[in-house]
Design a protein around this nucleic acid. Structure first.
Length: 576
RNA sequence: CGGGGCGUGGCGCAGCUUGGUAGCGCGCAUCGUUCGGGACGAUGAGGUCGGAGGUUCAAAUCCUCUCGCCCCGACCA
């Protein structure tokens, strides 16, 4: 490809809206352009990278027997009603009506469609197991896009679906996908950490997320440095202190004035006790409109994912407003379930075995001492609802865990029969009886993976593509091609040779100064930069520079020709 | 949705406080010189100052509404 003809432009200045390196570089180097919040166009260079990332994913899906297909972006709302997600999912699911007034949705994912297809096609156990996948646009009207391609509203996901006869079959399919993901991300040049995760809107029994560590990541990971334990903080369960030994007898409840102590820190300081002697109350409202009061010990934080699960919240939870809290007879800052009404009380398991805590008196400026669950108030649900904290003991080895931020590039879910039940997808087993098909689903964000690759592979000059995903194998810089026939002739031959070998290179044939060409070559990030110039010819040939290391050598012309035809043609070294 | 910020030529920005009819750098076009690390000179093109309404003799500038984008939070695969 001749750079003079390429539909792109580089930017000398950093775009003001781009904060993450991947966003900044992909914009500056002319790979992507933004159309709206969380909506991006892929320019030709970006499209080539995208295709190469997809190809890696495709090969690894095919390797485990996945069959590529394609499902629609627009779905009749009925199928989402049948699975229950039409009502369970909030405004991030875009709904609209077609011209006949029929309710439609833009697909966020494709479990419903797969369920229907399975119901249609699979009749017998002989047709199972089977795995299908596609690369398809998803629309998720996220409340807030951010970080360039890291978190967008419209994106292409590889989503795969397994169908099995039973749980054991699902376990095997899940393992196969797990392995495919490990190989995929390794080939893409992404170091991933696999963590146990929440099942979220997918439901089901087990899920893992493939995470790339990044300070800008939106998920918090709980990691044991020795590798014993890795979980998303949404689900991480850490050992908690045992009940005091010998048991502490409940003491008489006692109201105390505690002016100006709306936080645990100020309260504990005011009373001269540790935060572990206090009960923290947090208030939420579920998607189905119930007020939930969460009680954790003062030295812990509420984990909203766990709380939502414990409260069996439909449509998630959000913090309650002051009005909602007061309507239930509680006082923000001095709140507790004591005397409250109309609220679901969820207490952390540690609170249940912690006697004589300080808790709110539901009166501004007052708390109670010696509050005890069961005597002073009742819990509707007792569950682990706290966040893991840095330094907590690893549940396996006891060493302190660390918290790291991560970006989720892939996930795998054991779905079970939720979607096949909804779709009526069953098969006749060897026993002649109908059985529900057991499903799994497996996603990889293509654009997000690309952005993470740039995050991991760049320097102060630009992108440094891993060969496997580089849009072109090499970037040919010809200096003085406009006035040196010999230079132009060689460059042109290289360009043609590579093209004929089915492996295009990028040739900067523009009449630009050397500085501009080198700067752009480094910004664009091809793995190899070939320089042909009067100087290189005088030195005996072509200058070959490895982008990643900066290592440079001058090689004879015929050797470079061979490289173009053969060496760069090795798997992983050229654009497909 | 809450908090904060920003919309002025393709990109980056100044001008706004104190109203007087738009400017800088880069980029772009043409010509000449230059040619191994974002060249130089000359000439030139390009802007409904996000949009609507209002105040005023006069609005990029003041007021109201509105749209969009970014960041933090909330939320989320």
């Amino acid at each position: 490809m001749r750079l003079s003809q390429l539909f792109f432009t580089t930017l000398r200045d950093d775009p003001s809206e781009a904060e993450m390196p991947s966003h900044r570089l992909l914009l500056r180097a002319g790979y992507v352009r933004q159309l709206g919040s969380g909506i991006y166009s892929l320019l030709p260079l970006g499209k080539r990278v995208n295709d190469r990332v997809e190809q890696v994913i495709r090969e690894e899906q095919d390797r485990i027997g996945g069959q590529e297909m394609e499902m629609p972006v627009v779905h009749p709302a009925d199928i989402w009603r049948a699975s229950g997600r039409f009502d369970a999912i909030g405004p991030e699911l875009t709904r609209f009506k077609d011209r006949n007034g029929r309710d439609m949705v833009l697909a966020m994912t494709h479990e419903e469609v797969v369920g229907l297809l399975l119901a249609d096609i699979v009749k017998s156990y002989r047709q199972l197991p089977v795995q299908v996948y596609h690369f398809q646009t998803k629309w998720r009207d996220e409340p807030r896009a951010r970080g360039g391609l890291i978190r967008v509203r419209e994106f292409v996901m590889k989503d795969a679906y397994s169908a099995d006869r039973d749980q054991a079959g699902l376990d095997a399919s899940y393992e196969a996908q797990y392995g495919a993901y490990v190989r995929t991300f390794e080939r893409l040049g992404l170091d991933t950490v696999v963590v146990a995760s929440d099942v979220g809107i997918m439901g089901g029994s087990q899920a893992h997320e493939f995470m790339v560590l990044n300070p800008a990541g939106e998920d918090v990971l709980v990691l044991c440095e020795t590798g014993h334990y890795a979980a998303n903080r949404q689900v991480a369960v850490m050992p908690k202190p045992a009940a005091p030994e010998p048991p502490e007898a409940p003491a008489a409840i006692d109201e105390v004035a505690t002016p100006g102590t709306t936080t645990i820190a100020t309260l504990a300081a005011f009373l001269g006790v540790g935060p572990e002697r206090t009960a923290k109350a947090a208030f939420f409202v579920t998607g189905d409109g119930r007020l939930v009061t969460a009680i954790v010990r003062g030295d812990f934080e509420v984990n909203e994912t766990k709380l939502g699960n414990a409260a069996k919240a439909i449509g998630g939870i959000r913090p309650a407003t002051v009005e909602e809290i007061r309507a239930a007879g509680m006082e923000p800052g001095y709140g507790s379930p004591i005397g409250a009404r109309g609220t679901v009380v969820v207490i952390d398991d540690l609170v249940q075995r912690s006697p004589n805590l300080v808790a709110g008196a539901n009166r501004e400026g007052f708390h109670y001492r010696n509050v005890n669950v069961g005597r002073d108030y009742q819990a509707d649900v007792v569950a682990d609802i706290t966040n893991a904290q840095a330094g907590d003991a690893c549940p396996v080895c006891g060493e302190p865990v660390t918290l790291r931020n991560g970006i989720e590039v892939g996930n795998i879910f054991k779905l079970g029969t939720k979607f096949t039940d909804a779709a009526g997808a069953s098969y006749l087993g060897e026993d002649g009886q109908a059985h529900p098909i057991v499903m799994g689903s497996y996603g990889i964000g293509v654009g997000r993976s690309t952005a993470c690759i740039v995050e991991a592979h760049h320097d102060d000059k630009g992108i440094v593509w891993p060969a496997e995903v580089a849009p072109y194998a090499a970037h040919l810089v010809s200096i003085g091609n406009a006035r040196e026939p010999r230079v132009n002739e060689i460059a042109e031959r290289f360009h043609e040779l590579a093209s004929e070998a089915g492996r295009e290179i990028l040739w900067d044939d523009r009449d630009e100064s050397p500085g501009v060409k080198f700067t752009d070559a480094e910004l664009l990030g091809m793995p190899w930069i070939l320089t042909v110039s009067p100087r290189s010819l005088a030195a005996g040939g072509i200058e070959v520079t490895e982008r990643a290391t900066g290592e440079r050598s001058t090689r004879p012309i015929d050797e470079v020709e061979a490289l173009l035809v053969n060496e760069f043609g090795r798997a992983g070294l050229v654009a497909g």
